Amino acid sequence: MSDLDALFAPYPEKLSIDETAALLGISKKTAYKYLADGTIPAYKFGSSWIILRDDLKGKLMEGSNQQQD
Rank of each mutant, 00 (worst) to 15 (best):
P10W: 09
D18C: 08
K29H: 04
L4M: 14
S16W: 03
D54I: 02
D69M: 10
I17E: 11
G58L: 09
G63C: 00
A21Y: 00
Q67F: 01
Y11N: 04
Y32M: 10
P41N: 04
M61I: 09
T39P: 02
L35W: 02
G63E: 09
T20F: 01
F8L: 05
E13K: 06
I40D: 05
I50A: 09
M61Y: 10
K29Q: 08
A36L: 13
P12I: 02
D54E: 15
I40K: 00
K29N: 06
G58E: 14
G25I: 09
S47P: 04
I17W: 06
P12L: 12
F45Q: 13
K44D: 04
Q66F: 13
L7D: 10
E62I: 10
K14W: 13
D54F: 08
I51V: 15
L56M: 03
Q68T: 04
M61H: 05
S27G: 12
G63M: 10
L35G: 05
A31S: 08
A42E: 10
L4I: 15
D69W: 09
E19K: 02
K14E: 08
D5A: 13
S2F: 08
S27Y: 04
A6I: 14
T30W: 02
A22V: 03
S27A: 01
W49Q: 00
S64H: 07
F45W: 06
I40F: 02
K57L: 05
P10Q: 07
L60M: 15
D18R: 13
E13Q: 11
L56W: 01
S2I: 13
A22Q: 09
K44A: 10
A9D: 14
E62S: 14
D69H: 06
L15I: 00
Y11C: 09
L52H: 10
I26M: 01
E13V: 12
A22W: 04
T20E: 01
A42N: 00
A21H: 04
K33C: 05
P12A: 13
L35C: 09
K59D: 01
L7N: 12
R53T: 00
G46Q: 07
L15G: 06
L15K: 03
S16P: 05
D55P: 00
L24V: 03
Y32E: 01
W49V: 08
S47A: 08
S48K: 13
I40P: 05
A36M: 04
